[in-house]
């Protein structure tokens, strides 16, 4: 991809992140959204803080070459949170798509002629790729989550009983889910 889009993203990074963050945060109820936006303490506001950090990282590395593994690590923290919050999968992972609209808006605002249409569609497909990765991450998080859930009782009680030899006959079937 040529440098125009990259330059543009770099130049308008703060604005784009700000807008994107606002969009993502507005997926929460308004009372909560204001808290997420306002509260600066990362320990009193892990959701807001994680969200903004992840969005930054994604923008920074959006156009990198070898990005798939990196992108997973950038998307993981935010989706890890959203996947246990009250969102359907489309919303939990779909926030990535807000980026398309925001970038277009920004391009219009800037009346930037540099970025050509084919560059833009290349960017779009990058974002599409990102969404797919986001869904992968989402699925992975849910999978982990259910594993934890399934293992909990076992880890908590069964394991101890088993170690104590108070449970017999199931050892062959034992499979480690962790």
């Amino acid at each position: 991809m040529s440098g125009h889009v990259k330059n543009f993203l770099e130049k308008r990074k703060t604005v784009i992140i700000k807008k994107w963050f606002d969009c993502v945060v507005d997926t929460y109820p308004p009372e909560t959204a204001s808290f997420l936006k306002k509260e600066k303490d990362p320990f009193n506001n892990p959701v807001g803080k994680t969200t903004v950090q992840c969005l930054e990282a994604i923008i920074d590395h959006l156009l990198d070459k070898r990005s798939e593994q990196d992108m997973i690590s950038h998307l993981d923290p935010i989706i890890r949170i959203r996947s246990v919050q009250d969102f359907p999968p489309s919303k939990a992972a779909g926030f990535v798509l807000f980026l398309k609209k925001i970038i277009r808006e920004e391009l219009n605002n800037q009346k930037s002629k540099d970025v050509e249409i084919n560059e833009l569609s290349a960017l779009d497909s990058k974002i599409d790729e990102l969404v797919l990765i986001a869904f992968d991450v989402y699925a992975k998080c849910r999978e982990t989550f259910y594993q934890i859930k399934a293992n909990e009782a076992k880890n908590r009680f069964y394991k101890a009983f088993e170690r104590a030899g108070l449970v017999t006959g199931l050892t062959e079937e034992k499979q480690d889910l962790s």
């Binding site: 969009c23 997926t27 109820p29 308004p30 807000f98 398309k100 925001i102």
Partner: peptide
């Protein structure tokens, strides 16, 4: 995206 944004905005 517009629609997603629209739906999610301003409950």
């Amino acid at each position: 995206p517009e629609e997603l944004i629209k739906i999610d905005h301003k409950i």
